[in-house]
Design a protein around this nucleic acid. Structure first.
Length: 447
RNA sequence: GUCCCGGUGGUGUAGCCCGGCCUAUCAUGCGGGACUGUCAAUCCCGCGACCCGGGUUCAAAUCCCGGCCGGGACGCCA
């Protein structure tokens, strides 16, 4: 049975396999540093301890070749970690070519682009694989979190028909004789499911956005955690759940990913609970005091987000909600305050006259960047039609979505949380591409 | 999409402003050699590069133009 480098006990005969991380030759004594998923172990090959063939292999083997070693573990204060393996046998499973396309030992740094071109090798660095071990732990935790609270995990379609929503650009795909698109969000489907009686659903999935942006903060293929809950009182219920989720993710990472955090040079991820909550209006006031004027009814700029974080940081908050955005900068399905009428024309008129009317909406910012956004949704058919019209969207193309609102749609709301963004802010990554194994951006389609 | 910066061995860089002392720096790597306790081993010998195209000039890694590629800021963005 193969063992990992962190499972070795002195005096055991073990089988271990991995990559040659380092090789140090001292004439008749060779040290091989073997790397596997869990760490490193030294293989000490002394000419007097092993047969001629084994010694020759040890001396000749080049870096990053894959070997299997059968040998005896022994305590040795001179060895790293205090133990080493004296091999009975070294089997070369596969030789690596030289030179390597990048240096996995981190002696010479590599540019992100070079690293992404040779991602498998980049991932041999414990610092890099730690990011994805943490990502895996988070996703496992999130599934558990939702299941424990009675949520049903769902999967909505990746391929959608035209005109599902305004806003972001879609990637077209050929769907037999028709044109279809890759989905950009589960929004409409998770809402439809609220009319199904499933009541509380969540989805962890990949979405595609054809925006031609080129920043350290955007990707064209993203993964998100989405949820939708029926029978809420307001967006505050949704915020409560999101806060609980994010807070317990951080707590969980601190408790269950200690080793990975240490490798990444992080002691403990700071989180102050409860999260700070301010309204959009209040945020604009604060920014004004900080000398930054945002025109009412406009989204916070990158600079504004940064300034607001500086302010929040003073109070000890890395995480904070911005709530109650004006209607004009929120999507059409966002719950609008103070609509009494049930007549579509009257609602349209009202919205046109009051573009800054408050909505039951929120963003969750983490260290100055938006990681999640959500809201209570409109559940009244007439208001939804009016809102679509005001936003200039074609009612006809939302036919199937709208039908769900005609025959018993409960009040509901939800959020979407970008996993890459969360991970990036959580681990202080400089580029969102670091949080994806094989990122897709404007210029990168391979590997 | 706009603006700024960049492209030098396998990798990361120095040199560029102020053209010629460049037969191009340093590190790492790679090949060979010495070495029985290294831990970025050490020491000796060797290998390997100016993104592409055009221009200016007696002379271009260096200056100019175009292209391609990359980095960053902003914008766009459910």
């Amino acid at each position: 049975m193969r063992k990992y480098s962190n499972e070795l006990k002195p005096e055991e005969i073990v089988e271990i396999a991995g990559w040659i991380h380092e090789k140090r030759v001292h004439g008749k004594l060779v040290f091989l540093i073997l790397r596997d998923r869990e760490g490193f172990v030294q293989i000490t090959v002394s000419k007097k301890d092993v047969d001629e063939e084994t010694f020759k292999i040890a001396k000749k083997i080049n870096k990053e070749s894959v070997i299997k070693v059968i040998g005896k573990v022994r305590n040795e204060p001179r060895a790293p970690n205090g133990i080493e393996i004296v091999p009975n046998k070294i089997i070369v499973l596969n030789k690596a070519q030289a030179p390597l396309p990048m240096d996995p030992t981190e002696k010479v740094p590599a540019n992100l682009d070079t690293r992404l071109d040779h991602r498998f090798m980049d991932l041999r660095r414990p610092k890099i694989s730690s990011i994805f071990k943490i990502r895996s732990k988070i996703l496992n935790f999130v599934r558990d979190f939702f299941h424990k609270r009675g949520f049903v995990e769902v999967h909505t379609p990746r391929i959608i028909s035209t005109g599902s929503e305004g806003g972001t650009e879609l990637f077209p795909v050929q769907y037999f004789e028709r044109e279809a698109f890759l989905c950009q969000s589960p929004q409409l489907y998770k809402q439809i499911l609220m009319a199904s009686g499933l009541d509380k659903v969540f989805e962890i999935a990949t979405y595609f956005r054809a925006e031609e942006h080129d920043t350290v903060w955007h990707l064209n293929e993203i993964t998100a955690i989405d949820c939708e809950i029926a029978f809420i009182e307001s967006h505050v219920d949704v915020m409560k759940l999101l806060e609980e989720l994010v807070y317990s993710i951080i707590k969980n990472v601190n408790e269950n990913a200690e080793k990975e955090l240490k490798i990444l040079g992080i002691d403990e991820i700071h989180v102050k609970s409860p999260f700070k909550k301010i309204s959009y209006d209040k945020a604009l006031e604060i920014l004004k005091d900080l000398g930054l004027n945002i025109k009412y009814g406009e989204d916070l700029t990158t600079e504004a987000e940064r300034k607001l974080y500086e302010y929040m940081k003073e109070e000890g908050y890395d995480l904070y909600f911005i709530t109650d955005y004006p209607y004009i900068i929120r999507p059409f399905y966002t719950y609008i305050e103070g609509i009494e009428s049930e007549k579509i024309d009257e609602i349209v008129e009202f919205l046109k006259e009051n573009p800054f009317v408050k909505t039951r909406s929120f963003d969750l910012d983490y260290k100055g960047r938006e990681i999640s956004s959500g809201s209570q949704r409109i559940h009244k058919y007439e208001i939804l039609i009016a809102s679509l019209k005001v936003k200039g969207l074609r009612v006809e193309s939302f036919k199937h979505y709208l039908e769900a609102f005609k025959y018993g749609m409960p009040p509901h709301g939800g959020f979407g949380l970008g996993i890459e963004r969360l991970l990036m802010q959580l681990l202080n990554l400089k580029n969102i591409r670091e949080a994806v194994l094989f990122p897709r951006d404007r210029n990168r389609l391979t590997p």
